[in-house]
Amino acid sequence: MVLHWLSEACLLAGSFLLLTGALGFLRFPDIYARIHACGVTETLATSLILVALLLKSEAALPQVKLLFILLFLMFSGPTASHALAKAAWQGGVRPRATRDAGERPASPAGR
């Protein structure tokens, strides 16, 4: 019973985080803020949803599979966000704050 409500709570929290991530992706001003909105919430939200499913499932095999997926997402999600942000930086995109302050963007590194 406790497990059931715990899993429902995890599902709800995960869905809410996904929703905030989507909102942030649509509303945030520049690519770095958007990566932040999606990347951070996505990792946590999918982890929460997977944990919820883990609590719901009873057989051992699906649980092990879910654990593997969770592990894979823990590796791949943050790495993808990092690669995206790094690609944007190397492509010469600068955060909006420095652009608004009228600074000249530094020459893109690592070209």
Binding site: F75, S76, T79, H82, A83, K86, Q90, G110, R111
Partner: peptide, 10 residues
């Protein structure tokens, strides 16, 4: 251009 994080994770 090296990307340490992506290389290690991959």
């Amino acid at each position: 251009p090296r990307n340490v994080v992506v290389n290690v994770v991959s």
